[in-house]
């Protein structure tokens, strides 16, 4: 994790990406019991000049130059495959902006907050995402006012009520 974070901080320092944050199941280790996962998801914000299409190529090229193996859409850091997901909608962009720096092995890691992890899970809305949202609700220290604000602004309150009514 630390090595991956350092690689992404370099990407940020060199202007390849604007911001990044850890999301997905790997982020849950900061808030809940561990859940089985096989990859690490980093959400990134990139600046795309007007009129240009978004390309992941600069990110992959940079990491490849640094000696990391790029396999398909994944970057192998040690044996851990890292997925880079460019923030694909306003909710995810906001989640990356609002990420918190949390300590891990003596270093700081930008991690998406539990309120945004719930919102992203509800938006993705597969079975395992709903389970994650419930797990976070049960085990993480959730700021309810903040969660309600995010869910209301992104039109996810109805999904959340449906998920909670199944508990």
């Amino acid at each position: 994790m630390n090595e991956a974070v350092r690689a992404f901080r370099e990407l940020q320092a060199e202007g390849v990406i604007r911001r990044f944050a850890l999301g997905g199941a790997a982020a849950l280790i900061f808030y809940t019991e561990p859940v089985l996962t096989y990859d690490i998801d980093f959400f990134v914000l990139v600046d795309v000049p007007v009129g240009q299409l978004l390309s992941m190529q600069p990110i992959y090229e940079h990491l490849h130059r640094k000696g990391y193996m790029v396999v398909g859409e994944q970057i192998l850091i040690g044996d851990a495959p890292v997925h880079v997901l460019v923030a694909y909608n306003p909710l995810v962009e906001e989640a990356v902006h609002e990420a918190r720096e949390l300590p891990f092995n003596g270093e700081l890691v930008p991690v998406i907050t539990p309120e945004y992890l719930i919102a992203i899970a509800l938006q993705t809305n597969r079975y395992k995402d709903r389970e994650r949202a419930r797990l976070l609700w049960e085990q993480a220290a959730i700021d309810e006012a903040k969660l309600n604000d995010i869910l209301t602004r992104h039109g996810l309150m109805e999904v959340w009520e449906a998920v909670r009514s199944q508990q």
């Binding site: 630390n2 090595e3 096989y38 850091i77 040690g78 044996d79 851990a80």
Partner: peptide, 18 residues
Amino acid sequence: PTPVWNLAMLMRRAQESS
């Protein structure tokens, strides 16, 4: 077989690159 991360290697590499 499903993948297993080599945690020892990950930690060693993280220390080496710090």
